[in-house]
């Protein structure tokens, strides 16, 4: 899907922690060594899924999370829908119950990680460079840098984008898509792949509903059309309205300690 957006390879991703300068980059480890001198052609059957490598690594991540009983959530949305703000609101309400850690994905900067760091939970920023999504390899690397406890909650905030991140399984237990009322209520139909993959949809910024042409029930209906089993929440991170229902729902899914 990202073929049109010009995003780069996984090898460019840089992991960073708040308060630490620089960061380190792992270059792609395969060389391009040529053997010349052809002496005939031959067809080799492959029948291999294009996302095979990512899917294998995602399953490895999933196995790790399940073994350690870490509930892993993948938060997805367009830029500016309020993913970071939602985490800032949600984490303080849960962190007394369960250890929480966060992986932040953005093309550049550690500004989101700095916001999470202020909450006092471990966080690592993955800068994807020109990449427009997180992939399973980045998560695999990032979890090694995080002090992850058994029976905990891991929140992954994906790069703001409703297209490519839908294709890349990270090994998460659930995909949570956030949409805000300043976007269009037809968004689930415009980006059906994302909504089809999602387990939960959160409509944010409901405090702005009186000021915008956004039909919340129509949006919900559109989302349900592409994903029948979707859990739906309407809330305002700013005023706190509706946040309680979302947190109560999530609380029931936390691993028992």
């Amino acid at each position: 899907m990202c073929d049109t957006c010009g995003c780069g390879s996984d090898g460019e991703a840089v992991l960073r922690k708040p308060g630490e300068g620089g960061g380190h980059c792992h270059a792609s480890d395969h060389d391009h060594h040529h053997h010349h001198g052809a002496s005939g052609t031959r067809k080799v059957e492959m029948e291999q899924d294009v996302l095979h490598e990512n899917n294998l690594l995602a399953e490895r991540n999933r196995g790790f999370f399940e073994a350690k009983r870490i509930l892993t959530l993948n938060f997805l949305s367009s830029p500016g829908s309020g993913k970071t703000a939602l985490l800032e609101k949600t984490i303080p309400l849960l962190k007394e119950m369960v250890p929480v850690a966060v992986i932040e994905g953005d093309q550049q900067t550690t500004s989101d990680a700095d916001r999470i760091d202020a909450l006092g939970v471990p966080v690592i920023q993955v800068n994807t460079g020109t990449g427009c999504h997180l992939d399973a390899r980045m998560i695999n690397r990032a979890v090694r840098e995080l002090p992850l406890q058994d029976c905990s909650l891991l929140c992954i905030e994906n790069v703001g984008n409703l297209v490519c991140p839908a294709m890349f399984d990270l090994g998460e237990a659930m995909k949570i898509v956030v949409i805000s009322v300043t976007e269009g209520d037809d968004k689930p139909l415009k980006y059906p792949y994302m909504f089809h993959e999602a387990d939960v949809c959160i409509l944010n910024k409901t405090d702005l509903l009186p000021y915008v042409d956004f039909d919340a029930s129509k949006c919900r209906e559109n989302a349900m059309r592409v994903s029948h089993g979707l859990e739906w929440f309407e809330l305002s991170v700013k005023t706190g309205e509706g946040v309680e229902e979302w947190v109560a729902w999530l609380e029931k899914r936390l691993p028992e300690r």
């Binding site: 002496s39 005939g40 031959r42 067809k43 080799v44 996302l51």
Partner: peptide
């Protein structure tokens, strides 16, 4: 489906 079905290769030495 999204598969790499096959490749045709030139034999090396």
């Amino acid at each position: 489906e999204f598969l790499i079905e096959s490749i045709t290769i030139e034999e090396g030495e």
